[in-house]
Amino acid sequence: GPDDALNQLFDRLVGDEDRAAAGAGKPVEAIGAEAAQAYISSMGANIENVEAFVVLEIVRADSIGQITRQGFVEGWSSIYLDHRIPADQAHHRNYVRMCIQNLPQNPAYFKKVYQFAFGLGKEPAQKALEKDVALVFWDLFLGTESSDTGLGPRPWKSKNVDWLGAWKRFLAEKWTRSVNKDMWNQTLAFAEKTMVDETLGFWNEDQAWPGVIDDFVLWCREQGIAKAPAPGAAGGEEMDVEDY
């Protein structure tokens, strides 16, 4: 069956270090950072950016530095069941390429990979993502022209506002804690909304947004980044007022 083929595929990834880590004569249940990176590259994904997350999501990795046999077999096996993708290197590569192409275009798929990344990024013992890690991840997923890593698959910006830039400035000024799962997930939800309505007219303080998002909105208004829509003004656009 496909599981045998997948197990064989996994066996081929195993390096000397992994064998040593497992102990002599014992089956290797996980591969470490080096082998994992080699595998990601072999799938045609860029190890430096969000493409790596696409592969890691498929093989259900727990962290960036490790792929388990169980995750690898179950992950590809379910893709076989859903899409009838045969268990060989070439078909897997094609499938990964298709996923990478889909990432910027399919918001639901993007959200799946984005949310998956939270688990990849955090230390196993921790409940939350270190702030520095979260900042890097945001650049990878939502990067704009101002990001060091360049444009991400879904740049968080709108016509007049570089939202990711603003978000990072805000966090630098006001946020010292780590990023919990809710904040991570809600940041994307909020980002999607800002890209549709850059006046932030969708926001209101009675909604369930996390406090940090509420604070961000107020900060944006203070900074003049998003002007509160004038009451009664259609479309939230400002009226022209001439000076005499």
Partner: peptide, 26 residues
């Protein structure tokens, strides 16, 4: 204060007593 209630909801989300559903629902 509403802000304090929100904070507590966030804590409970984090502790996984609560989850977010669609459309501002918990």
């Amino acid at each position: 204060k509403i802000g304090d209630i929100k904070k507590c909801i966030e804590i409970l989300l984090d502790k996984e007593y609560l989850e977010r559903l669609e459309d501002d629902e918990l």
